[in-house]
């Protein structure tokens, strides 16, 4: 049977380390914002996308990106792709706004990705 990369139930993997580094972390404000945006665009009032579409978008990132991005990076990548796909936001305005935000940020430009936690390496 062919499996897609997210379909990992029953496969071999290393031990769970519930007490080790990366086993838990306090969610950062930007991570909660990703969660909040998803909840709002998928709520009863808006119904712009569903959680199934979120997951489809995450799975479509492909094995390389899926493993490279952190958990909420996968979420915002998926949400953004789907909002563009549905014409809610345009890719050009998104690019412009991201550049403005990055330029205006006191500490400047694009940082290295944050260290991965156990939940990211999934």
């Amino acid at each position: 049977m062919l499996r897609r990369h997210h379909d990992m139930g029953g496969l071999d993997a290393g031990p769970v380390d519930p007490f080790g580094p990366g086993a838990e972390h306090d969610y950062a404000p930007w991570e909660k914002k990703v969660d909040a945006i998803l909840r709002l665009v998928s709520d009863q009032k808006r119904q712009i996308m569903t959680v199934d579409e979120l997951r489809r978008g995450i799975e479509e990132l492909g094995p390389g990106v899926y493993d490279e991005l952190s958990y909420y990076e996968r979420w915002i990548a998926s949400v953004t792709n789907i909002l563009i796909e549905k014409g809610v936001i345009e890719i050009e305005e998104l690019g412009r706004r991201m550049a403005e935000i990055t330029d205006a940020w006191p500490a400047g430009g694009v940082a290295e990705a944050e260290p991965k936690t156990a939940g990211d390496l999934s």
């Binding site: 665009v41 998104l94 940082a111």
Partner: peptide, 27 residues
């Protein structure tokens, strides 16, 4: 204190998507 560290690509994306959704009146 968060502004003292550089933004990541996906943090900027999150901020941009939030701002655009608010400006468009979606949220």
């Amino acid at each position: 204190d968060l502004e003292e560290t550089p933004l990541t690509h996906y943090q900027a994306m999150t901020e941009a998507v939030g701002q655009l959704l608010i400006e468009k009146g979606v949220i």
